[in-house]
Amino acid sequence: MFWVLLLLLAWAFAGTACLRLCLAAVRAAAVDLDADAGRGQDLTLYEAAFLSGGPARVAELTLVSMARQRRLLLAHTGWATVVDPRGRDEMERSVIGAIGPEGQSRIAPVRAAAATAEAVRGLADRLVSAGLAVPDGDGSTIAAGVRRVRIAALAVLALSLTALLLPGPTGMPRELIALWFALPLALTLSCLVIARFEVHPYSRWASPAGQRLLGGLARHMNGFGDERAYLASVAVRGVNAIGEPNLRAAFAHHDRPVQDRAARDRPRTAGHPKTAGADGD
């Protein structure tokens, strides 16, 4: 009768995961009601970037915005060069500070440092307080609940296979054992189906109210000016929305631990606008 213990364990996995998903949905609905006042506000591009892709997206948007204004040069080899050291807001000053006093650095560490800067943390706190964003690392969100239910479904399936493959007599037909395990599996799958129709998409960063504001921004994007529409598409869709191949290639590079390779890729005339600009156009 060892399969009974496995069945109880399967029910524990399924019941706990589904219950936590339901509680997360209830909490999200309560936060959504508290965010009514925030729905009437227009999102800034930084806010849209955070709700769409988190701190890293905010850093990417800042880099692209400064590059479009020719105040920062982004080479296709993955290097950023400061042209105008005067940041116009806290985000830009964070990026310039992350590049460092030499005025040139690889884009990957700049993006990572800018994403953890105080300016981004302050933006996140404001959005969370307004009910438009979910706390970073909060395991009670709907997205986290859905992940737990998926893991529970896999666990139930694994436990059922283990029970069916147990050697020796079990005292019960294997078809009936499979039927018993089908019940907790059906519970997890039905929860996933309901969540798919009721609370999808599962955003890691935006609350339901924040997702609606993002949807409104996307619908009205065509009414913006060309430059604002361009930056809004980067904020919502990320660097894949960048039209220029060289500029998009600049974000495709990652940190390389080998120093001689980094030195080979580094522009030879660091900080020279004419040379670096050829790759940042």
Rank of each mutant, 00 (worst) to 15 (best):
P267Y: 01
D84C: 04
L183Y: 08
L73A: 15
K274D: 15
R174A: 09
C191K: 13
F13H: 15
A218K: 06
L9H: 05
D125L: 09
T44F: 02
Q104K: 11
A263N: 13
D36W: 08
L159D: 00
E92M: 11
S190I: 08
D36L: 11
Y230P: 00
M91H: 15
G53W: 01
V120L: 02
H272E: 12
A186G: 07
L19C: 11
L23D: 05
L9S: 10
H220I: 09
R266A: 14
E175Y: 07
S190H: 09
V110T: 08
Q69M: 14
T77H: 05
P55H: 02
R126Q: 15
R27I: 06
L164A: 06
A12N: 12
L43I: 03
M1E: 15
R261L: 14
L74S: 03
H272D: 12
R27C: 07
L33C: 06
R219P: 04
D36T: 11
R71L: 09
A250L: 03
L132Q: 07
D84F: 04
L23Q: 12
V4F: 12
L123F: 04
V146G: 05
W205M: 02
T162P: 00
W11Y: 14
R150D: 10
W11D: 13
R204C: 06
P169S: 14
V234Q: 04
L132R: 10
P184D: 10
V64R: 02
T44L: 01
M221P: 00
Y46S: 15
C18E: 14
L192A: 03
V4K: 15
P169W: 14
H76Y: 10
S233G: 09
R204K: 07
A59V: 00
L43M: 06
E175D: 13
C22S: 14
A112T: 09
T44H: 04
A10Y: 03
A144R: 03
A133S: 06
G100L: 12
C191R: 11
A143M: 06
M1I: 10
H254D: 15
F2G: 15
A163F: 01
G103Y: 01
L157V: 13
R248A: 08
S190R: 13
A49D: 01
Q259E: 15
P273C: 02
A152Y: 01
L164T: 01
G40Y: 12
L187A: 03
A114D: 11
I177V: 13
G277T: 01
N222R: 13
A14G: 06
V58H: 02
R93F: 05
I151P: 01
D136A: 15
L45V: 00
R71D: 08
T162Y: 08
H220V: 11
G168K: 02
L19R: 14
D34A: 14
L74H: 01
L247H: 00
P267S: 01
L7V: 08
L132E: 07
L127M: 03
G78Q: 06
A276T: 04
A163W: 00
E60S: 00
G139H: 08
G38I: 00
A252D: 08
R20P: 03
A218M: 10
L123N: 07
M66S: 09
D226M: 05
S65V: 03
L45Y: 01
W3R: 07
L213N: 05
A17L: 09
L165T: 12
